[in-house]
C-alpha cells in the first residue's frame, strides 16, 4: 500500500506501546466496573455497557501471552464494521502518524494481526489491525 502516513492512537499497556488507526478509535474512557462473562478466555476481562451497547474489554498483554500487573486506568474503544471492543491502557499517549506498513509480528494467533515495529514519537509500537483481531477473537476457542 503506497499510502501516506496514517494517524494512529498510541497507548501503553504495560511496558509495550500499541497503536490503533485513529479513525477506528471511537473514544477513550476511564476503565469502568466490569461484568464477568461465563466461559470467557483469560484476556477477556469482562464487559461493560456504554451508550446502550455491551463492550468486551481485551487485555492486550494477556492476549499476546505477556501479562502485566499494572493498573489499567483507561480503555480505548475501537469500532469496526462487525462490532466494537475495548483495549486496556495504562496510559494513552495521543495521536501519532505511522509511515508505511510495518510487517506482521506473527504468522498466527493475535500477533498475526499486529504490525511492527512502527516508529512513533514515543518510541516503537505495535500497530493493531482491528478488523482482523475482532475476527480472530470472535472465532472463540
Amino acid at each position: 500500500m503506497a499510502e501516506g502516513p496514517r494517524g494512529h492512537l498510541v497507548f501503553a499497556c504495560g511496558g509495550s506501546l500499541y497503536a490503533v488507526p485513529a479513525e477506528r478509535a471511537s473514544e477513550v474512557v476511564n476503565l469502568p466496573v466490569l461484568t464477568r462473562v461465563p466461559g470467557a478466555a483469560p484476556h477477556l476481562l469482562g464487559v461493560f455497557a456504554h451508550r446502550g451497547e455491551v463492550l468486551p474489554v481485551i487485555d492486550l498483554a494477556r492476549l499476546i501471552g505477556k501479562p502485566v500487573d499494572e493498573i489499567f486506568k483507561r480503555v480505548v474503544l475501537v469500532r469496526v464494521g462487525k462490532g466494537a471492543m475495548a483495549f486496556t491502557a495504562t496510559k494513552v499517549i495521543g495521536v501519532a502518524p505511522i509511515e508505511g506498513a510495518p510487517p506482521r509480528l506473527g504468522e498466527s494467533g493475535a500477533l498475526a494481526f499486529m504490525h511492527g515495529p512502527a516508529r512513533v514519537p514515543a518510541g516503537e509500537c505495535a500497530a493493531i489491525e482491528p478488523e482482523g483481531l475482532l475476527e480472530y477473537l470472535s472465532r472463540g476457542r
Partner: peptide, 25 residues
C-alpha cells in the same frame, strides 16, 4: 483527569475531522 480525558477525545475527534479539525486538535 477528566480534562485530560476530554482533551484526549477532542484530539482524537479533531484528528478524525482531518484538516478542518487540525486546529482543534
Amino acid at each position: 483527569d477528566k480534562s485530560d480525558l476530554l482533551a484526549l477525545n477532542a484530539e482524537l475527534e479533531g484528528h478524525k475531522a482531518g484538516d478542518v479539525g487540525q486546529g482543534f486538535g
